[in-house]
Design a protein around this nucleic acid. Sequence first.
DNA 1: ATGGCGGATCTTATCCGA
Length: 267
Amino acid sequence: MPATLATWNINSVRLRIDLVLDFLAEYRPDVLCLQEIKCQNDQFPQKELAEAGYAHQAVHGQKGYHGVAIVSRLPIAETTSRSFCDIPDSRHVSVRVDFGRGPVTLHNFYIPAGGDEPDPEINPKFRHKLAFLAELKDWFDTEDFVSRQVIVGDFNIAPHENDVWSHRQLLKVVSHTPVETDALDDLLARRPWTDLVRQHIPLTQKLFSWWSYRSKDWDAADKGRRLDHVWSTGDVAPYCSGAEILRAFRGRGDKPSDHVPVMVRFG
DNA sequence: ATGGCGGATCTTATCCGA
């Protein structure tokens, strides 16, 4: 029985707990990584998720915004979180979990969005995003990341031309500027990592995981970006047997998240 | 014209996302 892993920027887990429970009931991923839970740890819907079978939980939240969590049907161990850029915000949590081929470390990230203006000199949010990526690069160069690592999350960068609806029109838009996509490419090349989703869905195919709320008809306009990712070290990548982005969840229910779940299968 | 929306909270205004 293959194991499955999903990542989803839920944009408030309290507001959308019923949508999460529907997703879990329908797709039964073994592990779900959430970003933008937008609540403190004691406000996380741990009981509802435990009753749905996801009793193993690692939650790193904060008041109002950001926040990440991992919920699992499989046992988890060694829960840790770390801060970046000397800012005590909730953008990372990691656990050890076994998808069937021995334990791996699973890291769940919420990389800073970066604000509007793609200039680190005038925009502190963009400066923060670049500093965060630089710190990640240093961390990925350490022995912690030599093997048996899976990283997921909302990276807030759409790296390839077909990860955005229009490469040309987004070159100066935060999430697809060359300084960001180069930084992500550089990060990917370090280990090297394997982009598990693009391992299974060719780069020639347009692929998005986020569509703005502001677009009137997101489906028809289809002006999306692929901001949510699943990477692994090279030793784990051969065990990944499939990947899928669940586009339909952008239109699920009255109040969908602006992101949809990304799923990979191991074994 | 993706940014004309939609979250949370310091709520009828402001900050955050991207």
